[in-house]
């Protein structure tokens, strides 16, 4: 576990940035790749190993950063929803209603979609918890974050290695 401390720290940071209200407004597709990149830099500093980073290690660091971000993010999101009984599903409900109403759909489909969404909304307003919502948060976070983390790890390692390569050529 200690080996991936840098990934835990950066994963936590990314998880928080993705979930916490207000801070979340600044979220962007660069957060996770940057977190993976910083986890590689942090690990280099911590281990004082400034040699070329193997791609296998970069992939693992990126993947773990994404997985830790997903774990922290999911727990925080579920907890915040439970405490506040409010989340983006509730906030975006009127928007979704508008989108669905504007789409050229049959009345049955419109009704079915809105019913599913309404039941999730009611569960959250009443109990602060919905199984469907929790499941979608966990699945989404783990898939998206692990992919973006891995991509960040690979690109990050290329950048760090390329910098090392040019530094050694310059000497």
């Amino acid at each position: 576990m200690k080996k991936y401390l840098a990934a835990i720290i950066c994963g936590f940071g990314a998880g928080v940035l993705q979930i916490v209200p207000f801070v979340k407004n600044f979220s962007c597709c660069m957060i996770l790749p940057l977190a993976a990149f910083f986890s590689l830099l942090l690990d280099q500093r911590a281990t004082r190993n400034f040699e070329k980073i193997p791609m296998k290690k970069a992939l693992l660091f990126g993947l773990f950063t994404g997985l830790f971000a997903a774990s922290f993010g999911s727990v925080l999101e579920i907890l915040i929803t439970f405490i506040t009984k409010h989340n983006d599903v509730i906030a975006s409900f009127t928007d979704l209603q508008r989108i669905v109403q504007n789409l050229p759909l049959s009345e049955d489909i419109k009704k079915e979609v809105l019913n599913i969404f309404q039941s999730v909304r009611e569960d959250i307003l009443k109990n602060g918890f919905s199984i469907l919502y929790t499941f979608s948060v966990i699945v989404n976070n783990f898939i998206v974050n692990s992919i973006f983390g891995s991509v960040g790890g690979l690109i990050g390692a290329r950048i760090i290695n390329s910098k090392l390569h040019h530094q050694s050529n310059g000497q």
Binding site: Q18, N25, S27, C28, C29, I31, V144, N145, F148
Partner: peptide, 8 residues
Amino acid sequence: KTYSLVCH
């Protein structure tokens, strides 16, 4: 929800 993770 998926894209909200990677875009504001």
